[in-house]
Design a protein around this nucleic acid. Structure first.
Lengths: 211, 211
DNA sequence: GTCTATAAGAGGATAGAC
DNA sequence: GTCTATCCTCTTATAGAC
């Protein structure tokens, strides 16, 4: 427990935060379109007057949700992976293990909330789409940093940014299948293949260093 | 042109087929929830009475769409890749090039229709979900066959089925990002990394064969 | 098999009192 | 900032004539 926080009594969440919390949960469970405003209101214990006092539309609430994800990325996703290990490469797999936990805890119903929204909204909600990109970009920047820290454990001419993108690609593709199958198996197998790729890259880097 | 087909005059499509065609197009463009029955009717030039004569609900129409995808997989996806090259490994990348075309032709709005639906419907439409799985499974079975044909070009102890799954993972994750970004770049970079992985595997297989 | 008309309800959003 | 009541549109789906 963070002592700095323990001193401050838990303030009851604001109405606005409760709405964002409820929307975040329902959007990832049911998707944006399939989630009714009334369900959000009920889940947050709020009346419609209040929702439309804070947000001018359901889409604005979605935007607030995606901004919240941007804020949560570092403390909830990246930092735990950095705390898990000092090994630069292992941080990548600690991250993937964390997403695995999200899947397991929910019977493979949730995986990556951003990915789930990305496909649904990218055509018709352009502001939301740009926030999806911001989440993806920040995620990749975090992973790229680790891959740069890996130094000569990876091949010299390997583009760290491209490999970071590839890690996102694998995570998203893998969670999609786990969600569709409601089983973790495809996720694990995909991560195993990614691990195998990393092993190959590290092997190549070792022969480079010798010469 | 297939002469066998050229002899048969193009029969006007049945109402049922027109409905499936229209739904297929609209579901991939806008998603399942965001597509109204009225839009399907208008696009197909059909009245609601006819739709509900053939399908008992919008969900049954979705199921028909997913069954159509099952039927189209071999002729539209797998066979063109097999026709493109006799090289077993290159067939995998011919397949990925074909999905790239789908993305390019639509300004990255469509990629894999199944993947787009998978995340949206997997929670609440269980029959549809099982058809998504059938599409994924058949796709992977096709790719796995090619990887088996590759024989000792791939490492002996490498699980061909697992690698085929990984190809699907990469394709889905890559098209998700291309769709979110409305740019093909992330797709190309992901496929480039997959190519790099295959190169590593082939290199390993070569050293195995020598010994 | 297809048409028109419409039911029945849920959807998002607003008004105005408090 | 929050409440109740409600508007209006759009949604899926049905009824019954042709």
């Amino acid at each position: 427990m963070d002592p700095k926080k323990a001193d401050i009594p838990e303030e009851p969440k604001s109405t606005r935060d409760r709405l964002i919390d409820a929307a975040m949960r329902l959007f990832v469970e049911n998707g944006f379109e399939a989630t009714g405003v009334s369900a959000i209101l009920q889940s947050a214990g709020v009346r419609s007057g209040s929702l439309y006092y804070f947000f001018k539309s359901k889409e604005e609430l979605l935007i607030a949700v995606l901004e919240r994800y941007v804020d949560l990325l570092r403390p909830v996703i990246l930092e735990p992976a950095e705390a898990a290990t000092d090994d630069a490469v292992e941080r990548v797999f600690a991250l993937l293990t964390r997403y695995r936990s999200f899947l397991e805890e929910t019977g493979c119903r949730h995986g990556c909330p951003i990915g789930n929204l990305a496909l649904e909204i990218s055509d018709h909600h352009d502001t939301a789409r740009s926030l999806v990109l911001k989440n993806f970009d920040n995620w990749c920047a975090g992973v790229e940093k680790w891959l740069q820290d890996a130094g000569d454990r990876l091949p010299r001419d390997l583009d760290r940014g491209e490999l970071a993108r590839f890690v996102l690609t694998v995570m998203e593709g893998a969670q999609m299948q786990a969600k569709a199958e409601k089983r973790i198996e495809a996720y694990d197998k995909s991560v195993a293949q990614l691990r195998s790729y990393f092993s190959c890259l590290e092997q190549i880097a070792r022969t480079e260093t010798k010469s």
